[in-house]
Amino acid sequence: MAGGQVEIGQAGGLSDDGETLGTDAFKILSAIEEVWCEDGVLLLMDLGSAVMSAELALDMLPEQRRQKCLLSNAPLVEGAIVAALHASLGEPLQAVNAVAEAALSVPKLPGAG
């Protein structure tokens, strides 16, 4: 259980220079390894190549680790905040993902959505 502490990794851009836009499945793979714990890892993605690169990174993980990773449909920024909060309370992966994904329908402006 997280016990108030949440490991957050990031894997944006290409490995080489850290300046080129895009995604690198190997970079995602090492970020997963870096924050790995037996409770699992939730992956939040933005648009474009991020989803496919995250899927490819999961393909490259050993089977027993892959089963404990979850690709989230949550929005990147809002989802990350909500997920970190709920993970820090020690909630299981599926529940953390459910609240993060619910952030998709939270309007930013009063009366919107």
Partner: peptide, 13 residues
């Protein structure tokens, strides 16, 4: 996979 960057990277990879 690590050299292309956009959607073409994971696809060609």
């Amino acid at each position: 996979i690590s050299g292309v960057g956009g959607a073409a990277g994971p696809l060609y990879g």
